[in-house]
Design a protein around this nucleic acid. Structure first.
Lengths: 238, 238
DNA sequence: GTCTATACCACGATAGAC
DNA sequence: GTCTATCGTGGTATAGAC
């Protein structure tokens, strides 16, 4: 090649990809340990060995960095969720049956097994806490990343549980989401209370124990006080 | 009165009790909305109409104020929990039976119904988030307030579920705590996903739906891979 | 396009006047 | 018991070097 270099990343002062990933790794760890508002950009950039303003250049500030930390992990996780949910639907097309346990597995599994990805253990705790932790604005930002697949999950789960009214579904999902987030957040509270050494980082144990318990909760008959009707889908008139 | 005033609280510049409660109310609301690190002492004192340094005088800083917000609500809540748990034990002494549902009710009920107390609705969300939200140090501080009664609950629940190994108990408690905290934290996520208007602030609906679901989860037989033994207390070999 | 140096205002905390 | 002044540090923004 001659003087005018058509390859933009041929010889940058520093490697941008390296700078970005160093920032993401440091931010992931520190956000997980101290929460969004509990860490300073100066601490993150110091840990990453990157200049403060360079972080602003790449991520447009703290919120942008926070969001980028999530995007890196959530995008592949969503793909796995979508794939497993589709497998449930395929199974339904074949057998005419939709197993609530399989649907739970397709949604919770990727969220729990994420700690198996290299370096993602910090993200597991971070994402568990993020569902409640930050300010409403920050939560919305994160929720957006999950929205499409989460809505799909809720829809399929509702189909798998035709005995449940919308009201039932709401509260059972509270138990499902609550358990999933509590395990991901891994506060250490139960180890402390039980004086035991079981670890929530053990994703296969988590799945083995939690899915059947949540499935048993889903199997409980409707508890909706069906005054008038109050049942689910279709003509949900007032 | 002449120059030296022997009565300390006769005519203070402002009423200390008023100052304290105004600060607690403002802090409770703002901490619930934005988290510990998401609010400034200046915002809290500004909302309360109290001077910044006066807040430091009364609560020794931000952490002290945070802890005081919890103490005000948790102490009476613990008393109710202890009372209801004792009722479970009395019932057991009479009938020889310990109902897991009743034990769940005794522990979760006071935590959910707390939003019925005047002004405590903010605290419900705050306490739900606090289980994961703040830094580890701040979490320890809060956990201490719950410790005694929580340990008692775990113990009684274990007795009510003799079919469960310690390992089972660990994961079922994760579901129980997860659901309880998720309902208290009330992130608005499920309303958004379901497009429905059910409110987690409705404590009687929450109890009506959640207790039977969690109880069904407790009723699931042991899932512990009892290799060797792994079972719980005494010598209930596999 | 990538990064460094630096300046800005708000924060939590404290000392000392009233 | 309450307030003012002040200090070190936080997130953010910009100017300009490479």
């Amino acid at each position: 090649m001659q003087s005018s270099d058509p390859i933009p990343s041929a010889a940058p002062t520093h490697d941008p990809a390296e700078t970005r990933s160093r920032l993401l790794d440091a931010a992931e760890q520190l956000f997980a340990e101290h929460g969004f508002n509990g860490v300073s950009m100066r601490t993150i950039t110091g840990t990453a060995g990157v200049n403060l303003a360079a972080a602003h250049y790449h991520f447009q500030g703290k919120e942008g960095l926070y969001r980028a930390v999530f995007e890196r992990r959530v995008v592949p996780m969503n793909e796995e969720r979508a794939r497993l949910l589709q497998a449930c639907l395929d199974e339904e097309a074949r057998t005419g049956q939709l197993d609530p346990s399989a649907v739970l597995d397709a949604f919770i599994g990727p969220a729990i097994r994420i700690s198996a990805a290299p370096g993602a253990d910090n993200f597991r705790r971070l994402s568990g806490r993020a569902s409640a932790d930050p300010s409403p604005e920050a939560r919305r930002t994160i929720y957006e990343l999950y929205d499409t697949v989460a809505a799909r999950f809720v829809d399929i789960l509702a189909r798998a549980c035709p005995h449940l009214a919308q009201e039932d579904l709401f509260w059972r999902l509270a138990c499902i989401y609550g358990a999933m987030m509590y395990v991901r957040a891994d506060s250490g509270r139960l180890q402390q209370l039980l004086g035991s050494e079981y670890s929530m980082a053990d994703s296969s144990a988590a799945m083995h124990h939690i899915i059947p318990v949540l499935a048993a909760g889903l199997a409980v008959p409707s508890l909706a006080k069906s005054r008038g009707k109050g049942k689910r889908r279709s003509s949900r008139g007032s």
